[in-house]
């Protein structure tokens, strides 16, 4: 449970940024069924730009908790896939 909460804490910042951006893109293009795809692109881009080039020190919080960089990236992919599935409901 503790590890799941750590993943959710990590994803919180990505979701709060990627969600409004992808919703905005979906609204501007009137493509709500593609919202999940927009979220996928946005979240992966945010993840890579923030945590790959010059990672913030907070990354050590997760690494010290036994969560690897690969697992953090996979969590971003997992949430994106969930968003894609949710966006299919708009079709």
């Amino acid at each position: 449970m503790r590890i799941v909460l750590n993943f959710l804490l990590f994803q919180r910042n990505i979701i709060f940024t990627a969600l409004p951006i992808s919703l905005l893109i979906a609204a501007l293009t009137s493509e709500f069924s593609n919202f999940g795809f927009f979220y996928f692109l946005t979240s992966v881009l945010i993840h890579l730009s923030v945590y790959s080039i010059k990672p913030p020190k907070e990354l050590f919080f997760y690494l010290n908790n036994g969560i690897s960089r690969v697992q953090l990236f996979l969590s971003t992919i997992l949430i994106s896939v969930l968003m894609i599935l949710i966006s299919q409901l708009f079709e």
């Binding site: 750590n6 907070e58 010290n64």
Partner: peptide, 23 residues
């Protein structure tokens, strides 16, 4: 192995209690 970096690695937006429970 756990590592204490030179700069703070804590998440600033959460409480001390939550930090302890999460860690």
């Amino acid at each position: 192995i756990k590592y204490l970096p030179q700069d703070s690695f804590l998440i600033k937006s959460i409480s001390v209690k939550s930090t302890i429970n999460l860690f």
